[in-house]
Write a protein that binds this DNA or RNA. Structure first.
Lengths: 157, 157
DNA sequence: ATTCTACCATTGCGGTTCACAACGATCTCT
DNA sequence: AGAGATCGTTGTGAACCGCAATGGTAGAAT
């Protein structure tokens, strides 16, 4: 009962590689695991991880400009264009000219966008729940708090 | 002195979006921040994040098969092929037929591969250090431990 | 021993993600 | 009024990701 299988044993040796301590690698692997299930849950809604995050920002009256979306989501402005195009042609989001600056456009969710977002949010919770399954509730909060500071290094506390 | 700039104020509103608690999003953003600097540091060595991780597994006598690399790195086997091709033509890695199973090939680093890996590892440490700058040493260990469990959910403790 | 099934690396392909450069329209500053 | 910066947009090429099919090999079934 020592070792389940020889193949498994070999993989354990890789677990001893230096990568196991490499936060970049752990991040990549966790994301590979997580976003796969997330995208699968989002598929029936016609959304993907990236369009979901844009939609989330467009809801609740946040009314961001595309530039602000690009900064916040850490995406190239050109990517925002196609994501908003996609959401707009799906009727979930609207482009409005910023009255304060006619160059920029404000993204707001339509009524249908808000509805879809509520459903998508449930999918997000479900995906997250399965991704963080190995962790207790307290540990999840801890991880979230740490990741938040890594993801937003400019916010000095 | 309340608000530095109106643009900044707007972004703070996005900080209040539900995404700020979404581990999937935090992960994506952290990775976008991190891998950019990592790739920049790795560029002089002719490596990228993915080829670095393959090289890391090929060093230190771990001698994984390509299949094991695919499982461990969470990459499609076909991606491993091109990554190993790349490293092999750069002279950093060698393909050896597994004597126990002639179907599979074992990846081992050449002497030069081991040398390059040492330099690359320093770059990795530097990249990680800048990525985790907002965290104390204890918090970094904590984050690593939590991420390890999320990245390897099969390991029951 | 032969056949059947499963696995490995490989090739090829389509779609997604990402980074960068250029452009017209608009704002800001002088 | 003009110079320079910023916004959304378009275009392009590279990297990334996942799926299906193939030839060679291993192991189990008969």
């Amino acid at each position: 009962m020592a070792t389940p299988a020889p193949a498994r044993q070999r993989l354990d040796r890789l677990r001893d590689s230096a990568l196991t301590d490499d936060i970049e690698f752990l991040n990549a692997r966790a994301r590979a695991l997580g976003s796969a299930t997330f995208n699968r849950l989002l598929e029936p809604l016609g959304l993907r991880v990236r369009s979901y995050s844009v939609l989330a920002c467009a809801c609740g009256g946040l009314a961001p400009t595309q530039r602000q979306l690009a900064d916040f989501l850490r995406l190239d402005p050109s990517q925002i264009v196609s994501l908003v195009d996609e959401l707009e042609s799906a009727g979930l989001v609207r482009r409005e000219v910023d009255p304060a600056d006619r160059r920029s456009k404000i993204i707001v969710a339509t009524d249908r966008g808000e509805e879809v977002y509520l459903v998508a949010q449930r999918a997000a919770r479900e995906a997250e729940d399965s991704a963080l399954a190995p962790l207790s509730a307290a540990e999840r909060d801890q991880l979230r708090a740490l990741m938040r500071r890594v993801a937003f290094p400019d916010d000095e506390d």
